[in-house]
């Protein structure tokens, strides 16, 4: 088990390393740097800005510098400008003379908003997206899984058709439709909740529903298909033959195994939801991470592009690791080799 986790963490670093190389190369291959504008800057000014951000270094040096800033911890002592707190993600005060501080993970500045660093973006915008994403995931699971179970257990009855009708409706309607529709019905017509904005529980209801509904449909279909397959297994027949009540057959035997594909999907879903969703956050005017997935690219804001991609990759690999651990707990036959 420990070996398995160690190997997966090693794999995490390999993934992050490869992802960072591919992204770094691709984003530098896109013509037009962060400071190329419609109205061109005077060459001397541009050269100065590029020099300030070390954009005039050779490509490989830039990459190594970037990697070094993140990976290498530093110890500073004496009076330091306050801005260092913003540059580094981790600032730990060490005991000793002269206020020594261990600083680690400098994700770089944001070229587009020069007063903020990538860490500021993480600190301020990620919690918002995280909150929204987790609520959406909870909604998706609370609607989707019971709906799928009901449809599978009452197969070919009106419950099944109704449940799957709702589900196919959910998969067929992209969020760019559900979000304005929810706004129109509950915000504009019924005036039950605010149309957009962020800050209170009421503000979160519509976006979380919009996000969660689509995903719940996906989970419902998957749960149904997987449960139907499991219900045909021999061990279900054995359990029934032993005289186990139908209720226990479903709870103990079918659900436990039937949930494995569902858990597999929830891992990546979690990573995608909590790191921010552009469409929903834009439509509802939520200051989350989502917009940086687009504005960073259109503005060639290199450190923000790298930061958001790596953040997503970290979440994804960790979520998958947790999924693998849950496998072992749900189904002891799955061994880590």
């Amino acid at each position: 088990m420990a070996r398995f986790i160690a190997r997966r963490i090693l794999w995490l670093f390999l993934v992050l390393f490869t992802v960072s190389i591919i992204t770094f190369t691709l984003m530098h291959a896109v013509p037009g740097g962060p400071f190329a504008q419609e109205k061109a800057l005077p060459p001397a000014v541009l050269a100065n800005i590029n020099a300030k951000y070390n954009l005039d270094d050779p490509f490989l040096i830039q990459y190594l510098n970037y990697l070094g800033d993140i990976l290498l911890p530093r110890i500073t002592s004496g009076k330091q400008p306050k801005s260092l707190e913003h540059e580094f993600l981790i600032n730990i005060k060490l005991p000793g003379e002269g206020d020594p501080t261990l600083r680690w993970m400098n994700w770089g500045p944001s070229y587009k908003s020069s007063s903020r660093t990538v860490n500021d973006i993480f600190r301020e915008n990620l919690p918002i997206s995280f909150q929204l994403g987790v609520s959406a995931l909870v909604i998706a699971m609370c609607i989707g899984i019971p709906l799928g179970i009901m449809a599978a257990l009452k197969r070919n009855t009106v419950y099944d058709y109704a449940g799957m009708g709702v589900a196919i409706f959910g998969v067929s309607v992209p969020v760019i439709i559900t979000a304005p529709l929810l706004q129109y019905i509950f915000g504009v017509q019924l005036r039950a909740v605010p149309v957009s904005g962020w800050g209170s529980f009421q503000h979160m209801i519509l976006p979380a529903l919009a996000l969660g509904f689509t995903q719940s449909a996906l989970l419902a279909r998957l749960t149904r298909a997987s449960l139907l397959q499991v219900m045909n297994e021999d061990y279900i027949r054995t359990a029934r033959a032993k005289g186990v009540s139908e209720r226990m057959v479903v709870i103990r035997h079918a659900l436990k195994n039937g949930m494995i594909p569902v858990i597999t999907v929830i891992g990546p879903l979690f990573a995608a939801l909590v790191t921010g969703t552009f469409v929903v956050e834009t439509i509802f005017g939520i200051p989350g991470m989502g917009r940086f997935f687009v504005t960073s690219v259109t503005g060639r804001d290199y450190p923000v592009i790298m930061g958001t991609i790596l953040l997503y990759a970290i979440f994804l690999v960790l979520a998958n690791l947790i999924v693998d651990l849950i496998y072992a707990w749900v189904d002891p036959r799955i061994r880590f080799d």
């Binding site: 992204t23 691709l26 291959a29 896109v30 037009g32 687009v294 997503y312």
Partner: peptide, 22 residues
């Protein structure tokens, strides 16, 4: 596996920006 670790939307946007400007 590594391709899966990319956020699809960001990658699409990045590729589109690359194609469009190149």
């Amino acid at each position: 596996d590594i391709m899966y670790a990319f956020p699809t939307f960001l990658l699409v946007v990045l590729l589109m920006a690359f194609f469009r400007t190149s």
